[in-house]
Amino acid sequence: MVRRPPITLDAARRGDRDALAELWRAHQAPLLRYLRARRTQSPDDVASQVWVDIARSIDRFEGDDDDFRRWLFTIAHRRSVDEIRRSVRRSGLAVRAADHAVGADVEHDRYDALDRAIALVSTLPDNLGEAVMLRVVNDLPIADVAAVMGTTEGNVRVLVHRGLAGLRRKMSVTDVASRTMKSVP
């Protein structure tokens, strides 16, 4: 559960640097993990662009912390879509080609628990992984998830259900693979 720091959005609207820094510290990790789960090529750069966009428009923002999170992930969603399109045009390769590499990383246990979890979520189809990250990990309401993804609430429920089912299957396969790797002398 993401802890909500006592941030005064009013100070951030006025351009207070400490308030902007506290906003960044509170939401940078979920934002970065969301972008990594979406298989963004350079999540740090995209996250920086998202924060710059936030800073440019925060003086016109109205709402509480929940509204701010919905706004933050909406900008992140659009930025990630733009970055994925640019990367596809540059490389000419489908982003989904990295799925096998992610699975291989999970099997070899080269990453810690956080990286493995992100890698596992990123193996899901794009909209399923995004729905899981927004609804399950960041605990956004279904209406906010639907607003961020630009779809209906019913579709969000279906996507979350299918995403979790996919994760469960992948977890079982990963456990079998890890046990198999451990059993090999």
């Binding site: 351009g15 640097r17 920086s48 800073a55 440019r56 003086d59």
Partner: peptide, 17 residues
């Protein structure tokens, strides 16, 4: 990259304001 990003945010907010 906190300091760098926050500096960018402050500059962006100042320029936009």
């Amino acid at each position: 990259a906190e300091n760098d990003v926050v500096d960018l945010m402050a500059a962006a907010h100042h320029s936009s304001k």
